[in-house]
């Protein structure tokens, strides 16, 4: 179980390169969404590793929060040449 968590966190660190060096702003948004879903999978797997089922609620709340974040960023981020 723990090797799966290690592989997913390694994959998230590899995907952070696109946030670090994206040419434009939607690239960073796509990479942020991907890293968020990977962290949600890590939360679900940690709930199985510690055998405490209360941690699944944290995963559910974090999923809702991530979706709201992406929607608000895509609507309200400033486009530089539109004033």
């Amino acid at each position: 179980m723990l090797y799966v968590i290690l592989a997913i966190i390694l994959s998230a660190i590899l995907a952070f390169y696109r946030v670090f060096k994206g040419p434009s702003l939607p690239d960073r948004l796509v990479a942020m969404n991907s890293i968020g879903v990977m962290f949600l999978l890590v939360l679900v797997l940690l709930s199985y590793y510690f055998e405490r089922k209360i941690f699944l609620d944290v995963a559910l709340v974090y999923g809702i929060s991530l979706f709201i974040n992406v929607l608000i960023m895509a609507k309200y981020l400033k486009i530089p040449w539109k004033g």
Binding site: G63, I64, V70
Partner: peptide, 29 residues
């Protein structure tokens, strides 16, 4: 509860990608 989280993820992630793809329209890429 796991099935509920999976169904929520299956509904919301395509919506998020679609919203990002509409946000790209401002950038003339």
């Amino acid at each position: 509860k796991l099935i509920i989280i999976l169904a929520f993820l299956l509904i919301t992630n395509p919506i998020a990608i679609h919203v990002i793809a509409k946000f790209d329209n401002n950038y003339n890429l």
